[in-house]
Amino acid sequence: MDATTFGTLGDRLLRLGARRADSGLGLRVDRDSPESAVFPTRGLGRFVSYVSKRDAPTIVDLGPVVGANVSYFGEQLGCKLIVEDLFADLERVAHQVQQKEIELVSAINGRLDHQPGSADGVLCWDLFDYLDQPSAESLARQVIQVLKPGGAAFSLFGGSNSGAERYTKYAIVDGEHLEHRPYKATRGKGRVWGSRDVFKLFHGLTIGETYLLKIQIREMLFRKPQAAAQV
């Protein structure tokens, strides 16, 4: 399937089924703006509700460190937060002169060297939008492996590719709002993931919730089934 196409049946069904999480809020909505802006989120709240029920939760954040998020998860929710900043890895690979796919996937392979089943939650943000198929598959496998049974992963998928060379930090304003803080990058988003591709990518996890925001970002929550405990 052409990943840039949004017209597949699965996608259409998903769009119909997705709940509008950002209706009725007069916040700044300009996703091409290089400046920070605050957007509503529904998926984060659900993610938090999942992980906060767990005892002494450990959350792996694949994005860059954001002070507000450290405070939110560490102080307010009592989580242990592990910051991985895979965007820094992407940036390092992008700086290599003759970039090939194999280089990216080799940077991603084995990157999450945590004990299997040690994380209650994984914050992927929009990292997958910057990955090619092999590296995305590799990372998804690692995310699935690191999650505890019943754990949740939160990911954002863009609906279009502006080609702008920047990453975005997502700073938690509160459980219902995220501040998007773009920052300069060497590369732009690589692809737009169709929903069917996302489902394949996270095969083994159940799709907990999907929200389609007005800014054409899909927030998706995945959960590792409890039955996987014996695996």
Binding site: A56, V65, V66, G67, V70, S71, G74, E75, G78, K80, L81, I82, V83, E84, D85, A88, R181
Partner: peptide, 18 residues
């Protein structure tokens, strides 16, 4: 028990405030 990280700081690792 308290951790403050400024915008523009680099951090990689875990934060345990409890």
């Amino acid at each position: 028990p308290r951790v403050a990280i400024a915008e523009g700081a680099h951090f990689r690792g875990s934060v345990d405030m409890q």
